[in-house]
Design a protein around this nucleic acid. Structure first.
Length: 152
DNA sequence: AGCAGGTTTAGCG
DNA sequence: CGCTAAACCTGCT
């Protein structure tokens, strides 16, 4: 299928989400726009994300296109997908799950995550608290709060 | 080779 | 208890 972009508004975190499609889901990114954008949903992933932000969905059916990433990064990201809704894991724990002690490299792999949320990199936190987030820690916090609220 | 990264842990003040 | 400093791996220049 050819490439296309959808846009949805995530009320829970107060910003727009752009979803890029290739042959599979290719990327997800956050848009902090003041202007009102027009929503566009042409694929299932868009609807699923929309439901997610309303707290009605806890998992995604779509595959993510990880080609182009290093084998290590692919391992990290696919393992990250196994983290269940409302749960958090530390960087070092995620590293152990893929049979490595490279917690720091894990952070690096998560930082280049092409599709946040679908690949729940926001559920990976530092041992002493929050850790970072490529799109801004504020968004990470909002996401975790959303999941906390639906999964007490 | 060398450096920096979404860390971690130990060690000192 | 809060802060600095060294260490663990991987990916880019």
């Amino acid at each position: 299928m050819m490439k296309a972009n959808d846009i949805i508004f995530a009320e829970a975190i107060g910003c727009y989400i752009e979803i890029g499609y290739g042959s599979e889901l290719r990327c997800v990114r956050f848009i902090k726009s003041k202007e009102r954008l027009k929503e566009k949903k042409t694929r299932t992933a868009s609807f699923e994300l929309d439901e997610y932000f309303k707290g009605k969905r806890t998992d995604f059916s779509c595959a993510v296109d990880l080609s182009g990433l290093s084998p290590f990064a692919q391992k990290v990201l696919s393992e990250a997908r196994n983290i269940s809704y409302g749960r958090t894991v530390t960087y070092s724990e995620l590293a152990e799950r893929i049979g490595s002690r490279a917690f720091r490299a894990v952070g690096r792999a998560l930082a280049i995550n092409p599709a946040p949320i679908v690949i729940p990199c926001h559920r990976v936190v530092a041992r002493n608290g929050m850790g970072g987030f490529s799109a801004g820690v504020d968004i990470k916090i909002r996401l975790l709060e959303l999941e906390q609220k639906m999964h007490p």
